[in-house]
Simulated scan of single mutants.
Amino acid sequence: MAEHYSSFDRSGRRWLLQRLTAVFLIGTLAFHFFLLHFVNHASEIRFAGTQARMDEVGYFSMMVLFLVAATFHGVNGVYNALVNMGLDGTQKRVVGGVLALSGVLLIGQGIRVALAMAGVI
């Protein structure tokens, strides 16, 4: 039988964060679908409604946390998939740096959009 290999160290922080962000994302996505697809139907969603929701501190905070969790979960998952495929050495450091920078830029842009939607900037 083939040996199981994973770049995740099961006692590591990134392994735990990958699992925690997955649970958070599932819960947040369930909330999103319930609120924006069952309570309000797609045809009823308007820009003004989005602004009104983003004005609420709880909703705004949850969306920013969702952004950070989704970005970490995605970037960390892609990085570990590449490491599992054999990425190592200089390439591993460069890809890790590019993915980290991409994640920071994505979070920065997402927060900028969230603040604009909330009418802060």
Rank of each mutant, 00 (worst) to 15 (best):
E44Q: 11
I45R: 00
L67T: 05
G27Q: 03
V64T: 04
V68Q: 02
R46G: 06
V64G: 06
D55S: 14
V23S: 04
L36V: 06
F47T: 02
F24Y: 09
D55A: 15
T50S: 12
L25I: 05
A69N: 04
E44R: 02
V68N: 03
F34M: 08
V68P: 00
V57T: 09
M62A: 09
F33N: 12
T28A: 14
A48M: 05
A48R: 04
F38G: 01
S61T: 14
L35A: 15
L25M: 05
F38Y: 12
L67N: 03
A70N: 06
M63N: 07
E44W: 00
V39T: 04
L67Q: 01
A52Y: 00
I45E: 02
F33I: 11
Q51Y: 01
A30Y: 07
Q51N: 06
M62D: 01
Y59D: 12
S61H: 03
R46E: 13
R53T: 14
E44S: 13
L35F: 07
Q51A: 14
L67F: 07
Y59V: 14
M54I: 06
M54H: 03
F66W: 04
L25W: 03
V64P: 00
F66T: 02
F31V: 09
F33A: 10
Q51L: 10
L67S: 04
E56M: 11
F24V: 00
M62C: 06
F31M: 09
V64I: 15
T28P: 01
H32M: 12
A70V: 05
A30I: 14
L36A: 08
E44K: 01
R53C: 13
F66N: 04
V23L: 15
H32F: 15
E56K: 08
M63T: 10
A70F: 11
F66P: 00
E56V: 10
A69K: 01
L36Q: 01
I26E: 10
A52S: 04
G49I: 00
V68E: 05
S61I: 07
H32T: 07
G58P: 00
L29Y: 11
A30L: 11
F31E: 12
M62P: 00
L36P: 00
D55W: 03
V23H: 09
I26F: 14
A52N: 02
A52G: 02
F33R: 07
T50F: 10
T50M: 15
S43F: 08
H41A: 14
A42D: 12
L36G: 02
F34Y: 15
A30S: 09
F33K: 03
A48W: 04
L36W: 04
H37V: 10
E56Y: 05
V64R: 02
G27V: 05
G49D: 01
R46P: 01
I26M: 12
S61W: 05
F33L: 15
H32D: 11
